[in-house]
Design a binder for these strands. Sequence first.
DNA 1: ATGTCC
Length: 476
Amino acid sequence: MDLNRLIQHSNFEWEIPTAGDMLVPVIIYASEQLVRDMDDKVAIQAVNVATLPGIVKASYAMPDAHWGYGFPIGGVAAFDPDEGGVVSAGGVGFDISCGVRTLLTGLQRHHIEAVKNKLADDLYNTIPAGVGSTGGIHLKLREMDDMLRGGAQWALQRGFARPEDMARIEEAGCMAGAEPAQVSEHAKKRQQDEMGTLGSGNHYLEVQEVKDIYDTEVAAAFGIGLGDIVVSIHCGSRGLGHQIGTEFLKDMVIAAPQHGIHLPDRELACAPINSPLGQKYLGAMRAAINCALANRQILTHLTRCVFEKLLPDATMSLLYDVSHNTCKLEEHLIDGQRRKVYVHRKGATRAFGPGHPDIPEALRNVGQPVLIGGSMGTASYILVGAKDNDQRSFSSACHGAGRAMSRHAAVKQWRGRTVVDDLASRGIVVRSPSLRGVAEEAPGAYKDVSEVVEVADRAGLANKVARVEPLICIKG
DNA sequence: ATGTCC
C-alpha cells in the first residue's frame, strides 16, 4: 500500500481521510511494515465500505487485513439503523461465525508426550475433517430449526456440553433473534449431516503447549500457566453459513436499487437494517451463528470423549469461544453519545475490555479472552481485550495471521508430504485427509502471526497474555 | 470458507 495517501496518527494508526463519496474516514491499525505489505485492495475495499449508508465513525482495518469478498478480511464497520444504516452479507462473509475456542486440559507436556501419536490418531478418527465431511449426527429438518434457534444451548440439552461452558461463549451460547424460517431449506439440507465436523481450509483442531506468558495476572485469571496443554478448535457454520451468504448476496444485489443504494462494488451488496430484506438476513445470519456455536460445542464434546479415554485426568474446561465473522447489535460510545449500532466484524474478533457487562463474571475485571489462531504449525496467541478499546474499532482486534500467498501459489511451491515431514521433525504431528490441503495451508503461505499480534497489542486493541505452539494438528 | 462449477 502506498504510504503517501495516508495520514499517520501514531506508530500503529493510519488514516485515509474522507474524500469523494466517503462518509467517514478509513482507519488502519498496523505497523509501517504491515501497511507497506498490505494489498492496495485493502485500501480500495475499506474506502468502498466508508461510502455505505449509515456508517458511523470510520471504516476500520485490523493489522491482519487482506483482500476479501467486498469488505476486506480484517474489516470492522458499524452502522446506525436510524440513519439508513445497512447490513451487508459480504460484510459478514461466507463462513458466518467462523471462530476459535480454547479448552484448558489441566495437563502438562509430559502427560501428552507418551501418548502423542495415539492421541493424534484418536482425535483424527473421532473428528470428521475435510471438504464435505459428515459426522455421526444426523438432524431432521425440524431438529435443525431447534439447533438454529438454540446454538450451544441446544447442544447442552442434547448432552454435548457442560452447563458451565455456556458462560464462556459469546451471547452465553445462544444468539438471540435467530429466525430459522429465514434459512432456506437448501441451506438446512446442506447442514443436516455436517454438525460436529471440522470442514477444510484453515480450519483445525490443535493440541497446544503454552510456551510463553506475557501477563501473569491475566493468565492466572484465565487459568493458564507455562507448559500447560490446551486444545484449540477453529471452525464455523460449514455449508449452512456458506449457502445463506450466497443466497442473500444475490438478493441484496438485486434489491439495492430499490433501496436507493449505489454499490461501488457489487460484492458490497447490502440492505437497510430497517428493511424486510435486512431483517430477513439478520434472522438467517443469527441462525448461522447458532449453527457455528453448536458445531464448535459438538467438536468440544468429541474432543472431551477422546481425552476421557486416553487421559482421564484432563479437566477440559472451556476458556472461551470467539466468533470472527459476524454482525452484532452493540452499544458504543460515539462522539460522546452512547448509541446502538450494528457492528460488522469480518475476520475480526470482538475484544471487550475490562468491565464490559457481556464478559463472564469470573473474567469481567480482566477483560474478554481474545483467541488468535495461527496457521498450521505456527504459534497461536491468547490476548485480552484492551482497556478503553471502545474508542478504537468498536472493541475489535485481529483474528489471525492472514494469507500471504494464494492457495494456488502455495500448492505450486510446497508438497503436502514434505510439509507434514518437516513439521514432524519439529515434533508437530499433523493428521489430515488431504495432502493438497496441507500444501495450501503450509506455514510459509501465511504472514507472521507474531507481528500481527504485536501490533494489536501496541495499538491498544488487545493485549498479549500467552503464546501457544502446536504439538498435534488435525487439519481439514 | 465452500457438495473448491448448477
